[in-house]
Simulated scan of single mutants.
Amino acid sequence: MLTARTTGGKLMIQLVLTLLTIPFVLPLIAMVQGSLAGTGWNNYRTVLSVPQLPGFFKNSIIIAICTVALVYVVGLLAAFGFSKLRIPGKEFFFWLILAALTLPGVVMITPLFKTASTLNLLNTYPAVVLPLAALQIPFAVLIARNFVNGIPDEIIDAARIDGASTFQSFWHVVLPLMKPIGATVIVFTFISAWNEYLFPLLFLVDPSMQTLTQLPQFFVGQFSNDQTKVLASAVIVALPQIVAYLCLQRLFERGMSAGAIK
């Protein structure tokens, strides 16, 4: 790891890092300040008093947790297979999966809606969870495979000599070593699923099935546009993501650095 040995070098690094964070911090400060404008904390009380809020929160939690679990299991298993198993044509399939990274979710709205309607999945959690997971798995496989490439083959060979099957080698040997990259996958997937606006809006027809991303719509209408309540809603929606990141911060940072260089 590169470090600055002189005071001038340390100050320069600190200055550069501060300048890089300004574009990201200023909008957050403006959002919090705007949410406290007007009636102050009463804006948050009004938002928290919305009757549908508990249901929206429950729906968001269910969708986010199910998406994270699916991406975590499938992504890490696929990364292990692409990295350590001898599978015919695995490089072709790996690049085929990576090609999915170029597809934005918007272009797949029509076929996804038709498929969900045909399978009678509209207004159900799988109608949102499955597309979200499918869009996140390629990225999870990409970063997790780079991490698994750095795990010595000798460790897996030793487990097989001791009588472990392929799955047992993954579960008892590889998976514990993948905690940092697993935390990275969890954070990225949780943020993406929690912030998803379009898929719940289209696939969850019943208003009671909507997620927290629909909360600001209660304060925007034909004859009203209370931006202070909208910003307060945005702050409330963002809090679980901040908590998730803080809980997994150390593993997340280790996973990001390891997945980038291994």
Rank of each mutant, 00 (worst) to 15 (best):
T124M: 12
I143Y: 10
W171R: 15
E154S: 14
G150H: 11
T115A: 09
E91R: 15
V128T: 05
D153G: 14
V173P: 09
R160N: 08
F170L: 08
I156L: 14
L132F: 00
I151F: 13
W171L: 09
Q136W: 00
L132G: 06
P111G: 07
P138T: 05
N123V: 13
F170H: 03
F92I: 15
D157Y: 13
G163K: 06
A164D: 10
I109W: 00
D162T: 02
F93I: 13
P111M: 06
P126L: 10
V106I: 13
R145H: 07
F170D: 08
I143K: 01
I97H: 01
V128K: 02
L175E: 03
E91L: 15
I137H: 02
V174H: 02
E154H: 05
T102M: 09
A116D: 08
V173C: 06
P138D: 03
L132S: 11
V128R: 00
F94C: 08
R160K: 15
F93D: 11
A134Q: 12
N146L: 02
I97L: 12
A164Y: 10
N123E: 14
A134S: 14
I161E: 00
L122D: 06
T124G: 08
S117H: 07
L101N: 09
S165H: 07
P111R: 10
N146C: 01
L132Y: 01
V148R: 07
L101T: 06
V174L: 08
Y125I: 13
L122W: 09
V141Y: 02
A133H: 04
A116K: 07
A133C: 06
F94A: 05
L135C: 07
D157G: 02
W171D: 09
A116Y: 01
A140L: 06
W171K: 09
E91W: 12
R145S: 11
N123I: 12
A158P: 02
P131Y: 00
L121N: 02
Y125G: 12
F170N: 10
N120S: 13
P104D: 02
T124L: 07
I109H: 01
E91Y: 11
V148M: 11
V128W: 00
F147Q: 02
T124E: 12
W95L: 13
V106A: 09
L119D: 09
A159V: 04
L122S: 06
R145W: 12
P138C: 05
L130D: 02
A127L: 03
A127S: 12
P131D: 06
D162F: 05
S169T: 11
S117W: 07
L132A: 05
P152W: 08
V141I: 13
F139D: 00
L103R: 00
I155L: 15
L121I: 06
F147I: 04
F94H: 02
I161K: 06
T118E: 13
F92K: 14
P176C: 04
D153E: 13
D162Y: 03
V106M: 11
M108H: 00
L177N: 08
L98M: 11
P131S: 01
D153H: 14
L98G: 04
V174Q: 03
P138Q: 05
K179T: 12
L122T: 08
Q168C: 08
A99K: 00
N149M: 11
S165C: 05
P111E: 08
P104I: 01
A99I: 01
V148D: 04
E154V: 07
M108R: 01
I155E: 11
T102V: 09
L119S: 07
L98F: 01
P152Q: 05
